[in-house]
Design a binder for these strands. Structure first.
Lengths: 155, 155
DNA sequence: CTGCTTGCAAAGGATTTGCACCTTA
DNA sequence: TAAGGTGCAAATCCTTTGCAAGCAG
């Protein structure tokens, strides 16, 4: 299981995917795409909306929701389910990866493993339970080193 | 990692815990506790409410929410976070377990492992990322054997 | 008895929807 | 220029809260 580096060119990639899927490339969509694709932080619709308005003051919250919905359908972003709710999104990374989220700042790292341990675990679970396993979720929560440092300094 | 058997006496156990915590044992609370403690299925507040009303027609939805809140605070039930939301609850099982949820019927099984593989994974992730890991979530989704059988029959 | 609980109804928030106007392809 | 997309505001949906009346301890 190894740390996955940040990805390049996500923006043009996502725009292309939206286009292929038959969606039009409008100014508001470009703004929303750029905001999420370039964020290494978990983002709620409100937060995306506020950032979007800085660039494009007339954009509406509904448009943000509609764009997020499409990106999620296309699998380009995914929900992060946290104890306090599950309305936050992050970019999906290629391959089978698992997010690690900082509880202080929302920063996300990704872990990916070929010959995924969890996949093997999942086969074991399937055998014992009799279920057909379709999917698994694995998410880690903690505090990133930067937030730990800040905390140490403020004491 | 092994399948965890269903638990006995959850109801009296939970009532005792509520009592110890200083809460009163009222009729509506007993009803809600019985419904969730005896369910091996994921349950949303609405569903609990509807079942509760069959037994106790005057019970209010707010009471259901308030009881669920207490049970969650005491760690007796936990939220199941699914792609479509995270408002469903199931009983918490002793020890470190991971739920396996049927996407058709909501049935839940639990897996638990001593010397948890995921815990070891989590240490590895901590080293590579520099994060302090506080928690991890692992959930499996699939179709239980009963739902598969039903499906096969109806074709 | 005392104060925690309840049911009801109203309030609050987040998300979705309807619609006339605008833009992309 | 047609169809899809937008912003706005209203509508919905889920959850929480305020309060007088009802019970558990």
């Amino acid at each position: 299981m190894t740390l996955v580096p940040a990805q390049q060119n996500l923006v043009s990639d996502w725009l292309a995917r939206l286009h292929e899927a038959g969606y039009r490339l409008t100014a508001p969509r470009r703004v929303v795409v750029e905001i999420i694709a370039n964020s290494r932080y978990v983002m709620e619709p409100q937060a995306v909306y506020l950032l979007a308005r800085q660039r494009s003051p007339r954009i509406g919250l509904a448009t943000v929701y509609r764009t997020l919905e499409k990106l999620e359908d296309l699998g380009l972003i995914q929900r992060i389910h946290r104890p306090d709710g599950c309305q936050a999104f992050i970019a999906t990374v290629e391959g089978h990866q698992h997010p690690l989220i900082c509880r202080r700042c929302g920063r996300v790292e990704y872990f990916s493993g070929d010959a995924d341990i969890v996949t093997r675990l999942s086969q074991h679970v399937a055998e014992e339970s009799g279920y057909t396993i379709q999917e698994h979720w694995l998410q880690f929560f903690g505090i990133c080193s930067e937030c730990r440092r800040k905390e140490a300094n403020s004491e």
